[in-house]
């Protein structure tokens, strides 16, 4: 690909990313730019743009399987001043519910309640649903056939994740069996129980 063509492609993609209200995937970009455009060229162009916007006030971020042009996080306050907005704070209970759904999906409401030790209100579920962060994936085939919740695409977009694999620290998350095992090993020797180990969990 000639330098001129490569530059033109960069500039086309730049315009599309600015104008789009959702992340654009390679597939979507190819649809727009013409199927004959090789995906590898698009990738190269995006990398170039990413490098170009590195350390700038706006950035190209890879989210939800595509790319999006966004303002840099460090300017959050400036923009709040510009629009005279105060960002809504989410309650801790909503964040905890969201985290449990994100890391454990599919999860039923009863499972979330068991983990948090408190009731989960329908109000909170619908708040998360309205934001597009969670959605009903189906029903669990147990008595009562409760809804199974998982995260929606907007969750990835809003939290700047390319896929669920990018959830922070998901590798360290212990499941019930692992916790059970750890507890059984550590709870016996009362005197020798070592506190620093528990901090990591």
């Amino acid at each position: 690909m000639s330098v001129g063509k490569a530059q033109a492609l960069c500039s086309q993609i730049e315009a599309l990313l600015l104008a789009s209200d959702e992340p654009l995937s390679i597939l979507r970009l190819r649809n727009l730019l013409g199927e004959e455009m090789p995906g590898s060229d698009i990738r190269t162009a995006i990398s170039e743009l990413e490098a170009h916007y590195h350390n700038r006030g706006i950035q190209i971020v890879q989210v939800a399987g595509g790319w999006q042009l966004r303002t840099a996080a460090e300017h959050a306050e400036l923009i709040h001043q510009l629009w005279e907005i105060r960002p809504q704070k989410l309650s801790r209970s909503a964040m905890e519910t969201l985290a449990i759904i994100a890391y454990r999906q599919p999860a039923t409401r009863a499972e979330i309640e068991a983990l948090r030790g408190v009731k989960v209100s329908s109000q909170m579920i619908s708040t998360l649903q309205e934001r597009g962060w969670i959605k009903v994936l189906g029903r669990k085939e147990v008595p009562g056939r409760p809804h199974l919740y998982g995260t929606g695409k907007q969750f990835l977009v809003d939290f700047g994740l390319d896929s669920l694999k990018d959830l922070p620290d998901s590798a360290q998350l212990m499941d019930e069996d692992e916790i059970q095992q750890m507890v059984m090993e550590k709870i016996e020797p009362h005197e020798e129980a070592n506190e620093t180990d528990t901090e990591k969990s």
Partner: peptide
């Protein structure tokens, strides 16, 4: 997004 980062679609 919408709290710390913003779009200009």
């Amino acid at each position: 997004l919408g709290r710390d980062l913003f779009l200009r679609p």
